[in-house]
Every structure is written in C-alpha cells, then in structure tokens.
Simulated assay, not measured.
Amino acid sequence: MFQVRTPFNHRSFDALNATGVDLDVVSPTPYAPPIGPYSEYRRVPKTEQWGSYRVHYPRFLYMLPKRYFYHVSGNSAQKRVEAYVEETFETPHDVVQACGFYLDGYAALSYCREHDVPLVALSHAGDLKNFDRFNETVQSQIRETIDYCSAVLTVSDELAEIAERFAPASKVTTLPIGEDPEKYPTDRREAIRRELGIGPDTKLLLFVGRFEKEKGVRELAAALDALDRDDVAVAAVGHGGTLRWWFLDRLGELSHPSHAYWELDPIAVRRLHVAADLLVLPSHFEARPTVIYEAMAAKTPVLASNVGGIPEMVVDGETGTLIAPHDSEELRKAIDYLLDDTERLREMGEAGHRRLLDQGWTWRRHAERLGEIHREVMHE
C-alpha cells in the first residue's frame, strides 16, 4: 500500500490494520537536496515500524519547479516503486490502496498492471481540484490511473461530483474519514483548561491547519485584531505553511493572549480541542477537513467557511456556523456573536458530537467500509 506522510493516511492504515488486515506500506519519498527547506528529508529512515506493520520509504527524484516537471517526478516514483516492491516482497499483493491518484496512485500503476492487482485510490482533493493546473502530461497520467482503478474513492460528496468527470458514477464512492471520540477526554474539560491556564470566563478560540492564505489565516488575523473583547484567548496549531512567521507576528501583536504551536503532538492537539470554546476555520477551499471531525469528537462547535465539503459536515445553526470565505469582517461578527452565548456553544458542540456518531464518521467505520470495498474489487 502506498501513502504520503500525513496524519489522516496514517490513521486510516492504523484503523485498517486493527480490523485484522495485513499491510505492507510503501511511502515513496523524494531524494533530499543538500541544503534548503527540503534537506530534512535526509532524516527520513529507510523503513520504520508503525504498530504491527512496517513502512518503507524508497527514494525517488522530485523535480522543481513542480509546474513544469511534475510528470518527471511521477515517472521517477513509478519506476522506483515498482522496482522496490518487486525486490522487497515475495508475492504480489491482493489489492493496492493508494492515497490519491497522483503521485501515489500513478506510482503504483505499473506494479498493479504487471501483476493484475486491483488498485483503489482515495482522493482528499488535491489531485482532482488542481487537475486543470497540471500540465497535459500529468493530466494524462491522472486519467490513466483513474481508468485503471477498480474503485475511485473521495472523502466528500462534493469531491465525488468532480471525480465523475473522469470516471463513471458506478465506480465512484464517497468514503469519509473521521475521528474516534473515545480519544478525547471531554469529561476532563475543566481540569484541562486549568492545566492550560485558561480562566473559567475566558473564551478559547482554536485554529488548526497549515499557515497558508488558502486556510484563511490573513482573514483570521484581521478578524482577531478587530475583535473588541477582553475575554478571548487564541490557540493556533500549524503544520507547515509559507505564512508561518507572518501569522505568528500578527498573533504576537494582538491584545488577546495568544499561543502558536508548531507540529504539536496529536495528544496535545486533542487536549486543545477539548479545552476550546470554538474551532475557527475560515478556509478558501476544502474537501472534508480532518480538524472538523476532531472538533466534533471533542464536542467543540465549528465556525467555518461555506466551501467544498464543509457544509456536508457542519449543519449551519445546529452544530456550528457557516460563513462566506474571504470576509474578515463577517468572520469577526460571527465570532463575536457566538461567544456571547456560552450555552448555545455548548449545545452546538453536543449536537456535532451526536452527528459524528450518527453518521458513522469514525476511523473504525472508515476501516470497515474500506475493507468491504477491497473485498468487492478482489472478487470482481
């Protein structure tokens, strides 16, 4: 199986493995340049143990600028993955699960064809929503991958409609990811807030995501700066992003107490979700962001942009509030309005938690449905 190093892929495979499925995970990783921001890829091990299964990191050539040379990267990944899997594993696999059509799905394509192995790919948005931005060669490679796939999976209905531009509807399935509520100590909320130094009357606003303009961090900074309240604290957790230092500087200038965290441990992130009064996610576009599932598991209401697959998750006025993207003043007004009604926030958080369970948006259910799909394609 092939994946990129992202938390939702890691959790998906962990959940699948917990159902008794044997995994070989291969995560193609670029050769690292000697200097620069990507030089840290040299620290990626050749293999590592994740629970009861091992992950392999064969290197391939990743060419920049991506706009012109992404197809070269795809060809290199495909050649390297096929050779590595042939050399490393004794027998062909029953099914290959790819985390996206490009690069991962395309990287697995030659191996699957050679051994007549079914390929299933799960898109989280990037390869489909950015399709028109790729050069013609990459577009052709994505189409080739989708044509071969036995099943085309997407994390949202909105993304499934895009996938149907490239594949028959009978081949496309929405497979949500999710979160496991039992990992969130909601019964310890007050104790966790005390440990974090959050006063009982303080309203904690939480942002989790990349510090990028597409995540709405510029609008968020402007809204927080204009928020005229003395009962607000801000916590921002980042996982990369070109606006990292700009955003941290803006947070430092706020009159509200603010704390920024960089690549925080998942347990610590879960504690912040439990402690928060409101998750704020003013993205410009999304599929179904993991952070909203996390907030629902923590009984935290959501204020988010009405884009992509978010309206499939958040019931406006019931489990949270949806607003238009790109509007810092509307964002400020929505924050101000919601923070004035603590009881309403609590009710929204409870409703979001119930919705998570009612819809089966948990990792256990995700793995069960994925296993069902694998069995179907193996018997076709």
Rank of each mutant, 00 (worst) to 15 (best):
A233L: 01
A233S: 09
V234H: 05
A236M: 04
G238V: 14
H239T: 12
H239A: 09
G240A: 03
G240Q: 05
G241V: 11
W246K: 13
W246R: 09
F247H: 12
F247Q: 04
F247K: 15
D249S: 15
R250F: 07
R250T: 06
L251K: 03
L251R: 11
E253N: 06
L254R: 05
L254T: 13
L254I: 10
S255E: 09
S258R: 09
H259M: 11
A260N: 15
A260P: 12
A260T: 09
W262M: 10
W262R: 13
W262V: 15
L264W: 01
D265L: 10
V269E: 02
R270V: 14
R270A: 11
R270T: 12
R271K: 08
R271E: 10
A276T: 06
A276K: 11
D277S: 05
D277W: 00
L279P: 02
L281P: 12
L281M: 14
P282Y: 00
F285Y: 09
F285S: 06
E286C: 01
A287T: 09
A287S: 10
A287D: 12
R288H: 11
R288Q: 08
P289M: 04
T290I: 08
T290V: 14
T290A: 14
V291I: 14
I292F: 08
E294R: 04
E294Y: 03
M296R: 02
M296A: 06
A297M: 15
A297S: 15
K299A: 07
T300K: 08
P301Q: 11
V302E: 00
L303R: 00
A304T: 01
A304M: 04
S305G: 13
N306G: 05
V307N: 13
V307P: 12
V307F: 09
G308N: 02
P311F: 08
E312A: 14
M313Y: 08
M313I: 06
M313P: 11
D316E: 10
G317S: 07
E318N: 15
T319F: 12
L322N: 10
I323V: 07
A324C: 06
A324F: 10
A324P: 14
P325V: 01
H326V: 12
S328G: 06
R332M: 12
K333W: 13
K333R: 06
D336R: 02
Y337D: 13
L339F: 14
D340W: 00
D340Y: 00
T342W: 02
T342Q: 08
R344E: 01
R344G: 00
L345K: 00
L345P: 00
R346Y: 00
R346V: 00
R346K: 01
M348K: 12
M348W: 04
E350A: 14
A351S: 10
R355Q: 06
L356P: 04
D358Y: 03
Q359W: 05
W361R: 03
